[in-house]
Design a binder for these strands. Structure first.
Lengths: 345, 345
DNA sequence: ATGAAAGCGCTAACAT
DNA sequence: ATGTTAGCGCTTTCAT
């Protein structure tokens, strides 16, 4: 059992208090605490002791104010419930730490209004750069933000906006990989469960339609979304055939989370995966390995790392031209995809 | 295509600049911007216009410094990869917003060292309160932190530490519910895949052992962890029988993520769930509904909400006695649990 | 090696 | 209703 602390939380000691106790000036304390070499060993020892005894804790708001630097970057995540974003964030954290920056993490939870508010908060906190891990803002919004602070966007390619860099996979190519995989397995009736009305979903949908056309196949897009439940509903709809419209033999889903939902729907419909119907997701989140679901994978942590690296570069050199980094997308074949059922009914 | 901004990022305008442009004093601008009633309509209009034209953005570090308040709380999350924590966080966010606080979100990603550093950062940023959504700190660490700032702990009951409140489910009861569920289905050989060496895992393990004893059954604990891969390994070990040690007919797993891994292991071993073996998770995260896995559920968002509410209360009344809130735990029966295979071999 | 003084951008107490 | 003034806690010249 730890000692029960009962004194009231007193006003925190300041540099002034430490200085008084160590019998030196404020300036010297400041230097000593930041390991300046021009402090004598004796003073340093006295100062460190005094700080320790008082439980001194530097005040970042004060130091940020005078330094005109916060040493922090803001990170906006679209939706913390999607593990994909946590994986991207790992890379961001790693790179930010490496560069000596701390991160201010916020989320709009997929609500555009909240998203803007949270970003405003970051700007008021004077972050030195901003990383948007997926977002719902318009190009104008982004341009306005980037006019205030260097910005890097992950999961979407940004072009022609000053001071904005971006990192993304190739969504069209990715969908092509997915379609090719299924066609190679023998599928011809492949439906796409879309991710809803946003840019990424549109790109993936377009990629799907193109790839189907390239194989001379008829596309079929079922409106869906990026969550398990939306995937569930869309998959349910896709697989419940009407008599004049036989169900597809494969579902290419807009993202991994929705693919999990799709799998659930097949189970509830009593369909075997991949025996009756194949399912392919998109993003490559870790969890899908355990779930044995085929997916079009992106190097998530690496995307975050690259975005943070680009941002740091830009903070140092504000007017470098915008760059976009395209990362490799690859198909990871697992147990949720296989040949179509042999007797087509 | 948005207008391409090319001017360099100039020094941000301050209150002083706005005041000069509007032809009034700094103080009046400050008042106007914060909707004080003692500003004339004319001045207010002029000030708002000037601020707009200059693209004025208040500086929170400055305002925090002078107000001696940050209007923010710190939130530490053990592991952003576990969707359980995102659900708890929803509740925290909701309550914090309601009380007019913003949140500073950090994660140690299950690394004790990083965890301490991140919390230190929060303290230096002068958060007015701290919420720990699972943690690996000692009671002494917590006591030291709480001596600086009001603290609320989620998922673990804290007792006897001044200025620390907590919200948790009843892990022993929860495990009892899990065991009872399986026993009622007819299971007698129920193994527990533990969550590793931490307090929560220990409590859940103890609860399991007690519940088994209450039914006169032999407990069997397999060391595991809180991740999918650890669940996978532990389940694999549990279900691969040696000849003198028949495999259990049910696995009661330390948390949901590990239960997903356990399910994967059964699939890879060619075992049917629940035909050959039943699986029950713990936490009640949303995703498990789609995956149709039985789990011992806690009201996650509500736990976060209550923790934030307690924290706000304590910020207002520092010396209120510590309180612990216990939330209801319930079994959600789904498709991963059923009767044991009839011919026991 | 150390200290005095100025000031970061803002708010608040006080004056008018 | 508006302006003046004095800091908040810190870093950073500039002296000594």
């Amino acid at each position: 059992m730890p000692p029960t602390v009962t004194e009231p939380i007193r006003k925190r000691p300041t540099l002034h208090d430490v200085a008084a106790r160590a019998g030196v000036s404020k300036s010297l304390v400041s230097l000593a605490l930041r390991d300046s070499p021009k402090v004598s060993a004796a003073s340093r020892a006295a100062i460190l002791a005094a700080a320790e005894e008082l439980g001194y804790r530097p005040n970042r708001t004060a130091s940020s104010l005078v330094q005109q630097r916060t040493h922090s970057i803001g990170v906006h995540i679209l939706d913390l419930h999607n593990p994909v974003f946590a994986e991207i964030l790992d890379g961001v954290h790693e790179a930010a730490r490496r560069h000596g920056y701390s991160t201010l993490l916020v989320t709009g939870n997929a609500d555009r209004q909240t998203e803007k508010q949270e970003i405003t908060r970051l700007l008021e906190s004077r972050v030195e750069g901003l990383i948007l891990i997926a977002h719902r803002l318009s190009d104008d919004d982004i341009a306005a933000i980037a006019a205030e602070v260097p910005t890097a966007v992950v999961t979407w390619q940004m072009d022609g906006i000053a001071r904005v860099d971006s990192v993304s996979g190739d969504d069209r190519l990715g969908m092509r990989l997915g379609v090719d995989h299924l066609v190679t397995l023998g599928h011809r009736s492949i439906a796409h469960l879309s991710g809803g009305e946003n840019r990424i979903s549109h790109a993936r949908r377009d990629g799907y339609v193109e790839a189907m056309a390239a194989h001379g196949l008829e596309p079929r897009v079922i409106p869906g979304g990026f969550t398990e439940s939306q995937g569930y509903r869309a998959a349910h709809e896709a697989a419940s055939s009407s008599q004049d419209d036989p169900p597809p033999t494969a579902l290419l889903v807009a993202n991994d989370l929705a693919a999990i939902g799709a799998l659930a729907a097949m189970r509830d419909l009593g369909l075997d995966v991949p025996g009756d119907i194949s399912i392919v997701g998109y993003d490559g989140m870790r969890l899908l390995e355990a779930l044995d679901i085929t997916t079009v994978a992106q190097p998530l942590a690496d995307m975050g790392r690259q975005a943070a690296d680009l941002l740091m570069e830009r903070i140092d050199r504000l007017d470098r031209p915008s760059v976009h980094r395209r990362v490799a997308t690859e198909l990871r074949s697992r147990g949720s995809s296989g040949p179509p059922p042999s007797p087509r009914r």
